[in-house]
Design a protein around this nucleic acid. Structure first.
Lengths: 283, 283
DNA sequence: GCATAATCATCGATATGATCGATGTACGCC
DNA sequence: GGCGTACATCGATCATATCGATGATTATGC
């Protein structure tokens, strides 16, 4: 290519900051390797044959492609571009994620975020499969950490008792035992376990009337007097039915975690997303 | 790319017939060179980050481009493709070149020929400038060879006296002196010199009435009785006016040459064109 | 729960190949 | 015909790609 640009081997060598014999050597090797006639001695100079010229043009195309790849990589490294795939559970997707997206857009305008809704075990599987790069998960105190993934707690999500407005127990410490005879509604399967544990601690076994992992549906059921439930803060932040009352349950909380897969260092874009998620969580 | 295909460093090494540490080394160097996080240790294995995966895809594109360039070169070397640019003077363009094109099409169907009409000095300049790869030229015996180019004579082109049919001198040796008092028509500038030399040899100086390098026009002038002329065999093979008669002039001929520039070896496609041009010339 | 197998990182040694400076050869120019 | 320019060749040197052996870490199987 340098020979094509400059016309002489010496000039090509100068342009590439090499010695002249080096270029001669390279050209000879290229001819041997391709088995083609690329050069022709003409007078005291050298000229590219049509084949040689075509090869020089192809070479320029290759270098352009490499430059483009390098530019893409640089843009990604400098957080000017890139797409991060995030898995989040529903109540976080409705609260933390929108806040994070807004903050991310302000801080790194070129960075994009792909959101997938997934419950924690599903999210861990997606991390392992490489479907997503990072996940927002939650865990209850006694639950074992999912296998292979790394979780960092960024927020303690207070659990609250949720009752029909008419049954509001008022301020002060909540005693779940007051609702031992009431019918109960529970959320997802994992939350059900926590609910049972809390009630057992209060000295009774709740009568489960209905179960749904949709926190809007659960609140509607409570509002219409079908029972009471326990919901985490994020779910209530996302949506609070006007006809229900909420009272924090002392010492009951779930941990909101940022979960990743594999050992650091993580790509800069992933770290940037982790940073904004952390910020919007502690706030 | 091999890592992207196989999933593990060891498998990639096996596929590339390299040792495992070699691949590890390459990957590490690539990360340092790009300054990006391309890999992530995960369990006892290794995984490409999104950036790494994109780079692997770009690499495949680069390799595809290189393969395409190599295929082009191979096709050209094996005479399955290529374009050869040929300069030829008008009477050869009308006679030898069509025959050569036909033979070339039969022998190397993939090879293409670009024809440019050019008189010999012009053709030599085009060879030097690299505008054409090979040329058909002619030269009169006493003319010096053009500078820098290499010419090989492939045909002796007999010169003939061309007269109006009414003045046909009949068979037997032609004596130009018989036409000393006739008006003369001459061809191109270089042919004019040869005509003057022939006439001087015959003992007279011709009276030039008209000059043109168009052999069709010249024959028309002769046919209409405006004078007589000398034309080479190729011009008469290309076009013979019905109202003129032709008689070979003993010992008078021009050399038809294949002319190239620069030292051998020439590209295979150029040699192939030279071969067919030689064959159709001797026939 | 412990042994085993698998995977990748590190290290030192080797060999291949790139690069350079010096020199030789061919050509054009004055 | 001498001189300068341009490329080819040669031998020496240096960088680096590669390998085998080994170590660290993790998943798997009994």
């Amino acid at each position: 290519m340098a020979l094509h640009r400059t016309g002489t081997v010496s000039a090509a060598a100068a342009q590439l900051h090499y010695g002249q014999p080096t270029i001669s050597h390279h050209l000879r090797r290229l001819e041997v390797e391709t088995g083609s006639v690329l050069l022709q001695r003409v007078g005291r100079g050298l000229r590219l044959t049509p084949d040689g010229e075509r090869l020089a043009i192809r070479g320029a195309e290759v270098l352009a492609l490499l430059a483009r790849a390098e530019a893409e990589l640089d843009a990604s490294t400098s957080l000017q571009a890139g797409q991060v795939r995030l898995a989040a559970f529903p109540s976080a997707a409705a609260t933390l994620v929108p806040a994070a997206v807004s903050l991310l857009a302000r801080r790194h305008p070129g960075l994009g975020l792909d959101l997938v809704e997934a419950e924690p075990p599903e999210a861990a599987a997606m991390l392992r499969a490489g479907t997503v790069d990072i996940a927002l998960t939650f865990a209850y105190p006694d639950q074992p950490e999912a296998d292979g993934v790394t979780s960092v707690t960024v927020h303690e999500d207070q659990l609250s008792l949720v009752v029909p407005r008419a049954l509001d127990p008022g301020d002060g410490p909540v005693d779940l035992a007051d609702f031992a005879d009431t019918r109960w509604v529970t959320g997802c399967e994992r939350c059900r376990g926590e609910l049972l544990a809390l009630c057992e601690l209060a000295g009774f076994t709740p009568q489960i009337a209905f179960a749904s992992d949709d926190y809007v549906a659960v609140q509607s059921l409570v509002a219409s007097g079908l029972g009471v439930t326990v919901l985490p803060g994020l779910a209530l932040r996302a949506h609070l039915h006007p006809d229900v009352a909420r009272r924090p349950i002392g010492g009951a909380a779930r941990a909101i975690q940022i979960t990743t897969y594999g050992a650091p260092p993580h790509p800069a874009a992933v770290e940037a997303v982790a940073a904004v998620l952390t910020e919007v969580s502690v706030a």
